[in-house]
Simulated assay, not measured.
Amino acid sequence: MAEIIGVIEQLWRYPVKSTGGERLDSVEVDERGLAGDRLYAVRDGSGRFGSGKNTRRFRRMDGLLRLSSRLGHRLDGPELFDPLGRPVADPDAFLRAYLQRPDVALAREDAVSHLDQLPVSVLTTATLDWVRRAAPSAVVDERRFRPNILLRTPPDTPPFVEDGWFGREARGSARSGARLTFVRASERCAMTTVAQPGLPHAPEILKAIAQAHDGRLDALAEIAMPGRLGVGDTLSLV
Rank of each mutant, 00 (worst) to 15 (best):
I149Y: 03
I149F: 11
I149K: 10
I149N: 07
I149H: 07
L150W: 00
L151V: 08
L151Y: 08
R152E: 14
R152Q: 15
T153A: 08
D156Y: 12
D156Q: 11
T157W: 00
T157I: 03
T157G: 02
T157P: 03
T157D: 05
P159C: 11
P159L: 14
D163W: 01
D163M: 13
D163N: 13
D163T: 00
D163K: 08
G164F: 06
W165Q: 03
G167Q: 12
R168L: 14
E169D: 11
E169S: 12
E169Q: 10
A170M: 00
R171Y: 03
R171M: 12
R171I: 00
S173K: 01
S173T: 08
S173D: 15
A174P: 07
A174V: 11
R175E: 15
S176M: 02
A178T: 10
A178R: 01
R179S: 08
L180N: 03
T181R: 15
T181P: 05
F182S: 04
F182I: 01
A185P: 01
A185W: 06
A185C: 02
A185V: 07
S186W: 00
S186T: 02
S186G: 02
S186K: 02
E187A: 14
E187Y: 14
A190F: 12
M191R: 09
M191G: 10
T192W: 02
T193F: 14
T193V: 12
V194S: 07
V194Q: 08
A195H: 06
P197D: 09
P197A: 13
P200A: 01
A202F: 09
A202H: 09
A202I: 06
P203K: 06
P203M: 10
E204I: 08
E204M: 13
I205G: 04
I205N: 01
K207F: 12
I209K: 04
A210T: 04
A210W: 04
Q211C: 06
Q211A: 15
A212S: 11
